[in-house]
Write a protein that binds this DNA or RNA. Structure first.
Lengths: 411, 411
DNA sequence: AGACTTTGTTTTTTTATCAAACAAAGTATT
DNA sequence: AATACTTTGTTTGATAAAAAAACAAAGTCT
């Protein structure tokens, strides 16, 4: 393994390992306080001590460390509650910035966020990703230069880069895409193809996975311990968050909802199977279905405009989509019993027109106990969700293992 | 919350909490050593120091503590490897025993194991659990007395009691069964109905969940990080293990594979839905199906005997079952990408007659990436698996949080 | 004005680990 | 057989981190 890979976070879940590893107490407490301050926006040393159970003296010492790292600042005094006025501690959300890249089947997106998830800069453009990898990578590297030049004065401010790809990612080889879904990308090493300095941490993950992460951090999934994010686009994929972490399955391909078999006698899918969900609710099949019924559109968004204007054909098409999707979602809920299911992608913009028939279908196909405490909603993060999630994966690592992340710059 | 519930382990996954909690370093290292000694059967202080990275002096001190707790013993001297002979440390597997209870839809089972999973005693008998809770509880309490009297001289030797039930369990109210599946058990408080002294830890969980646990500890799932256990019996349920822990979903009802809709136009199920998997592969529907084709049996095991003798009707029935089951398993694998799927219950005794057509069906319904590193096998633990798993849940808690478990007896 | 509170720091104590020294008991070499 | 080296496990002192206690600062409440 070359030096280039030192900064690549393993996508492997490390809980199994860290359990067997020696614990570095101070690092853990440092991360614990960092998360509390991050989540609280403003707090005080005394409050932190009460919340964490650490002593006031330990908290003082640890907070000093965080201030030295420039992640936390003192911001004047707060209001007395019957004694000395506390010193307000504030997370320094603008001390670093994160780049998130969204490599879609037919588009590229790039976002810069601060440590509070605020969007500093955002760009998106069409690109022939699936068919022309070389050209797309060139385009992507230009996009990266542009957005960095625009938003960041000093490269030291770049905390890391998260990359989302439209393919399952194997934990062992995150730099290569799946030959099944992206045949033209075979043998292309994504890490080496991207022009980011060697000492900047990189993280590659599946688009639906990071979409789920974005929703639980910033969107409709806040506060959920178990959630599923379904990305409805050219393809259909799901990402799962379980107890704050992305669930990837054994080979990294968990969440392949798009290739659940809905109709064993259905049409043949690009993956080779028959009657996959994506052959009913992928963008292309939907548009074709509408076309057959006499409604011609090139984009899902155009179809949805027609829907809003009350077009009965569009309505029928969407409700037929809801029924197919409902079968898969019902299966998902029976199987995994998530707290919330969040629909994302172009199609989710249909809102209630999609949700109402979908919920109805799910109700007739799921156990009461599996859905009684659950709900299905649409994403609130729009087209940025994937790029945002990619960036969030870097932020998550920073807040859980700050010292590991920050030594990247020291070495 | 009364004292009675102090000893009831929450079935809630505590990882989210413990992350936010202060770390008790010595407790963690104690548990770490305990697990290493447990897994190694026999080891030495020097070996432990090398394996864990702890210093020899720390190991010595911690091991002394474990010896005081009577969990570990010194067992003479080992062979020299060029220097002083090491002292052999041996896990004291017989220092405590665990009671596991299997409350099935129509049977009761009770098992006593030592800390190495060795079965000390095992009983099983039919019982009208689903329809007559009061009588069944009476029967169960008699069974508990009998098996304890038979195997355990001193009640101090009982480390805890694990209970498996044929119903989803809500993490908030583990003592009540689901009214949907066990309507006659409504308002019955399971914890208070079982005659076990108040100071003995109890753990209630769903049968498929603990079945999965048994397989990963003692059976066909050893070494797996992600596995699914499918219990094929009167009902059909799945249990998931993710990174060593049972995955329960938000409301505790993850794994309801039996109520995945296989055929939207299929027969109505007891749960109220239509075409559930269980209406095709539950014991009763299978026997009825065979009956229709002219093969009359009262039990699945009888049907399987016929199968072994080459009965073509039995063969057809099983392969039809495999096809239905295959649809659900394929969905499971696409969605969760487990390393291994293990079939348990009476039907799993069919072995290859079931596995071959099942694997074939799954292959034509699952993505290559979701199944290429996975396999489907049958359980190796037989009819004890559920009771064994219930007991194992207590063992797991003991080995991960020994101090928490043992203070139960000191208080 | 005086008593009590709350906060944050400083000092001291406690806890847990580690490193080094050491004793015990072996093997390998000459 | 004597000596040198190894390995193990304990003991002793050093170090790191946290907690407890004491304290100073700055408030509120009566």
């Amino acid at each position: 393994m070359t030096d280039r890979y030192k900064n690549l976070f393993s996508t492997l879940d490390q809980s199994a390992l860290s359990r067997a590893d020696k614990v570095h107490l101070r690092d853990q407490n440092l991360a614990l306080l960092l998360r509390k301050i991050w989540a609280g926006h403003e707090t005080t040393r005394a409050t932190l001590a009460r919340q964490t159970g650490l002593s006031r003296s330990s908290v003082s010492s640890l907070v000093d460390h965080l201030i030295d790292m420039r992640l936390v600042e003192e911001r004047g005094e707060g209001i007395s509650t019957g004694g000395r006025k506390p010193t307000i501690l504030r997370f320094n959300y603008q001390s670093k910035f994160i780049l998130g890249l969204d490599i879609g089947a037919s588009h590229l997106g790039a976002i810069i966020i601060d440590l509070n998830g605020q969007v500093i800069s955002w760009r998106q453009e069409p690109a022939p990703v699936r068919l022309q990898p070389a050209q797309s990578l060139h385009q992507l590297n230009r996009l990266i230069q542009e957005i960095l030049d625009e938003s960041i004065t000093n490269r030291d401010q770049l905390l890391g880069v998260g990359i989302a790809v439209p393919s399952p990612i194997s934990p062992q080889n995150p730099q290569y895409l799946s030959p099944t879904f992206m045949p033209t990308w075979r043998d292309i090493n994504l890490i080496e193809s991207i022009s980011i300095p060697d000492n900047i941490p990189l993280l590659i993950d599946n688009d639906a996975n990071v979409g789920a992460l974005a929703e639980v951090w910033w969107g409709a999934g806040q506060g959920c311990n178990q959630l599923a994010f379904i990305k409805l686009g050219t393809g259909v994929g799901a990402g799962f968050i379980i107890d704050g972490k992305v669930f990837r399955g054994h080979g990294g391909s968990a969440g392949e909802l798009g290739h659940m078999v809905i109709d064993p006698e259905g049409p043949t899918c690009v993956c080779g199977l028959q009657g996959c969900l994506v052959t009913f609710v992928g963008s292309q099949p939907i548009l074709k279905h509408a076309q057959k019924l006499g409604l011609e559109h090139q984009k899902i968004t155009d179809l949805l405009s027609a829907l809003k204007e009350g077009d009965p054909i569009a309505r029928d098409v969407i409700s037929s989509v809801a029924k197919s999707l409902g079968l898969a979602v019902a299966g998902l809920m029976n199987m995994m019993n998530p707290e919330r299911v969040i629909l994302g992608g172009d199609l989710a913009l249909a809102g209630d027109s999609l949700l109402h028939p979908l919920r109805e279908c799910v109700q007739t196909r799921s156990l009461w106990s599996a859905i009684s405490n659950s709900n299905i909603v649409t994403s609130t993060l729009g087209e940025q969700v994937i790029a945002l999630g990619a960036a969030t994966s870097i932020l998550q690592r920073t807040l859980t293992q700050p010292n590991q992340v920050f030594t990247q710059w020291r070495g």
